[in-house]
Amino acid sequence: MEIFGIPHQAFLGQIMLGLVNGAFYAVLSLGLAIIFGLLRVVNFAHGAFFMVGAFIAFLLGRNLGLGYWPAMIAAPMIVGFAGIIFERFAIRRIYGLDPLYGLLLTFGLVLVMEGGFRVAMGSSGHPFPTPQLLRGAWDIGFMMLPVYRGFVILIAVVVCAGTWILIEKTRMGAYLRAATERPDLTQSFGINVPLLLTLTYGVGVGLAGFAGVLAAPIQHVNPSMGSDLVIIVFAIVVIGGLGSVLGSALTGLGLGVIEGLTKVYYSEASTTVVFLVMALVLLLRPAGLFGREEA
């Protein structure tokens, strides 16, 4: 059986792979959306924190002998902590300024981080073994699905859902949302808004670090692993609607699939298709697919 000229096995396989990539997009764009939603900062350094997460997992393994599972907990925390320090000493100073300043600041940080890792760790990248438990592949009929990739989809869904619940259904989330809408009023209720913002940034980049650990066994740990990704992830956040958590996650998965299919039909366009979609969405629905028009 063929679907649009390619064997249905290949077709289904590509959709499956698209979901795996989409899972990464979802987790990354989630953090980006939270940060933008609450801090109004375009965090260009997101990809760099993703890369750092992967490197921390690698270094913990190489220098301390820690395996994948402890790294999965430790790396996001270390990255989150680094983010908190960065927020405290740098980003805090540009709140309220034109978003362009935030973009420039975080972009500068990307260059410093990537350059630093390139000098210290080389550009070729380092292997990161897949955890013993998740090796091998399942034969799911139309393709061999590596167990680890299946695990990535699962984890991504859990993380996205958890974040959504945290923001929409808990008291903490309510504070966060209140601080976004009316920071002055929220503060007058005795809630420490600057601390909330700091923590939000920490959690946001912590998520990026988490995605980095997830990607380490698949992608090969190297200094530029985040830079290509972050541009696509930005497009996804824009398509999903700036600040919309659920929108980003769903758009991430969806665009992963679209990109995967493009690789089969017209591989040359696979790097541009996301931006094509972005242009279309911006023309037809400027606030994004799930975004609300702001007054």
Partner: peptide, 11 residues
């Protein structure tokens, strides 16, 4: 500079 080759490997 492609990081994800899964799609190409499937082909």
């Amino acid at each position: 500079g492609t990081t994800d080759f899964s799609s190409y490997v499937l082909q």
